[in-house]
Design a protein around this nucleic acid. Structure first.
Length: 171
DNA sequence: GTCACGATTTGT
DNA sequence: CAAATCGTGACG
């Protein structure tokens, strides 16, 4: 019998690819934590080199070290002293690159989805292939398309098309 | 040690 | 449009 729907945890190889590829392919995947799960609807790619909007652009620091480490780990940081932002590390070990998760089903906004999923800085460096936070194979509906736009809220390299958003073909 | 600032959200 | 709120990184 053909499998019509799988629900497997994404493996290391999924993440060990170019950041833009990982970003685009994270759309429709399912974020799981503490018994809650929701599809990823919006992401942004932050590149390792030549991307001044990326935290990793000024090299390794205590905060950004995980971005240079092995792929498939969580980069979580505090923004504006208030909100936690959840990122997924991409690229092979030694190369920087990560994907900011901006929206999941029913929770639009980087700070809002982390609160909803109970993700915070205690998960910094967590291995997403092991848990407690995991990302699973998902689905994209036939009437959904991928929108590509500039990233939100940055002040440098503002025109790069690195934001990917799943939205209805109609609307 | 000090200090300016941010990949946001919320309220006026 | 402005406030909230604090860790980070640059500086020296």
């Amino acid at each position: 019998m053909p499998k019509i729907h799988s629900n497997e945890v994404l493996n290391r190889d999924f993440y060990a690819r170019p950041t833009v590829t990982v970003a685009r392919e994270l759309l429709g995947k399912i974020l799981v934590h503490k018994g809650k799960s929701a599809r990823i609807l919006e992401v942004e790619a932050y590149l390792g080199t030549g991307d001044r909007a990326a935290h990793s652009s000024r090299g390794r620091t205590p905060r950004t070290q995980v971005i240079f480490g092995p792929p498939g780990h969580a980069y979580v940081y505090l923004i504006y002293g208030i909100h936690e932002c959840f990122n997924v590390v991409a690229e092979p070990e030694g190369t920087a690159g990560c994907v900011l998760i901006r929206a999941i089903e029913n929770h639009d906004g980087p700070g809002k989805l982390t609160r909803a999923m109970e993700i915070d800085r205690s998960h910094y460096g967590a291995d997403l292939t092991r848990g407690p936070i995991t990302i699973h194979t998902g689905y994209i509906h036939n009437d959904e398309i991928v929108e590509v736009t500039p990233r939100i809220g940055i002040r440098q390299d503002t025109h790069l098309p690195l934001r990917y958003k799943l939205s209805s073909r109609f609307k």
